[in-house]
Amino acid sequence: MPDAPRHIVSSYEQELNQLRALMARMGGLVENQTALAIQAIIDHNAESAQAAMEQDPEVDALEREVESRAIKLLALRAPMAQDLREIVSALKVTSDLERIGDYAANVAKRSLRLGPTGNDISLGGLRSMGRLVQEGLRLAIDALGQNDAEKALDVWRSDKAVDEIYTAMFRELVTYMMEDPRNIGACTHLLFIAKNLERIGDHATNIAERVHYSVTGAMLPASRPRGSASPETPTP
């Protein structure tokens, strides 16, 4: 962990730390919510689904608190350089986290409606996708907590794999639906679930971009590594 230089005004330092602690708390919540949502689909666990949905209000409340604190810091302390970038990034990251929470809650909700029909359809693809998304999210939130631009870059690079698996799942599910129209209900839910997971991955990548910017001051290129025919990892 880079040991940040201290500020002269210690109450300012304290406020910054409180903001960071809130962000970490929100990150932990959202991470947990995503894990629960994925568990809800893979293990058909209704309790996990319920727990994931119940966390949503807390995430929303934290978002509002982060926002108001960040704005207060901006207004009263007039931060400069990295502090400024960090606080502005916090404003954006917090809404990314909130969106992730929403998607996770939605996945959990759909897992309840999926019902027993979902059992015949292989959930292997979703499991892999869930893992990838969770890995990216954890790495992004680690990067956020430690102000680690390197980790952030790792997330940014790995988003491609999620896109690829999403495309593959899309095809697979469409095939199921064509085979037997009775699958359409479950498959539609699964499609939305996959889409939501993919969006969670995207928001994790957003967070990584923000962290990279906040630490280095340099924006990553607008075009992300996309899942495509060329499988080699591009260098930034």
Binding site: A24, R25, G27, G28, E31, N32, I141, D142, G145
Partner: peptide, 11 residues
């Protein structure tokens, strides 16, 4: 450690 310390249940 970071992931552990931000766990909601622990927090």
């Amino acid at each position: 450690l970071p992931a552990l310390l931000r766990n909601p249940a622990l927090g």
